[in-house]
């Protein structure tokens, strides 16, 4: 890593690392999956960093690289222990302390339902939960705004069905 580049990347990464945690939480099934995906996204972000010109927000750029990596991060075969021991605990990313038992239970059910969605639907849900405007969701996915709205409505209906 070049020193200037490295410190700039580290600073921007630390400011936005929540994005990576959330994507790993959404796409990884097991703790090892999440750790591996975390590692893969970080590698891809670092590799792609020279292409970041600073014209767009770092977070917007990060959404794209991280989602592109996550949707094509197919797992097969044995789930080996992650190569790098990370000081990350994905269980901690889910905190229910502020909620009563009933809400906590409902939140857990909602996460379980989201887990059943496919990769594209998860990307939609992720951007929606990040409170992104449909224009931005459409741009990240590469589809029209109308299409993004239609798909999001469909995902909401699917989630309702999964919850009932």
């Amino acid at each position: 890593m070049a020193k200037a580049n490295e410190s700039e990347f580290l600073k921007l990464y630390q400011e936005n690392q929540g994005i990576v945690y959330k994507i790993c939480h959404l796409y990884g099934k097991t703790e090892v999956d999440k750790q591996d995906l975390f590692q893969e996204i970080t590698i891809q972000l670092w590799k792609a960093f020279p292409t970041f010109k600073g014209t767009a927000k770092f977070s917007t750029w990060m959404y794209r690289v991280a989602l592109n990596t996550a949707i094509t991060f197919f797992r097969k075969g044995k789930k080996k222990r992650s190569e790098v021991e990370l000081n990350t605990d994905f269980a901690r990313t889910l905190t229910y302390e502020d909620y009563d038992d009933e809400t906590e239970q409902r939140l857990k059910l909602m996460y379980a339902a989201i887990e059943k969605l496919n990769e594209i639907e998860k990307a939609l849900v992720f951007l929606y939960l990040e409170d992104k405007a449909y224009r931005e969701i459409a741009a990240t996915l590469g589809i029209s705004e109308v299409n993004a709205r239609v798909k999001m409505n469909r995902v909401k209906t699917k989630l309702k069905k999964l919850l009932n």
């Binding site: 929540g18 945690y21 905190t95």
Partner: peptide
């Protein structure tokens, strides 16, 4: 709940 997610994770060193 989503917005709060990951807030407790310490930044990567």
């Amino acid at each position: 709940a989503w917005q709060k997610m990951g807030k407790d994770n310490s930044p990567i060193d």
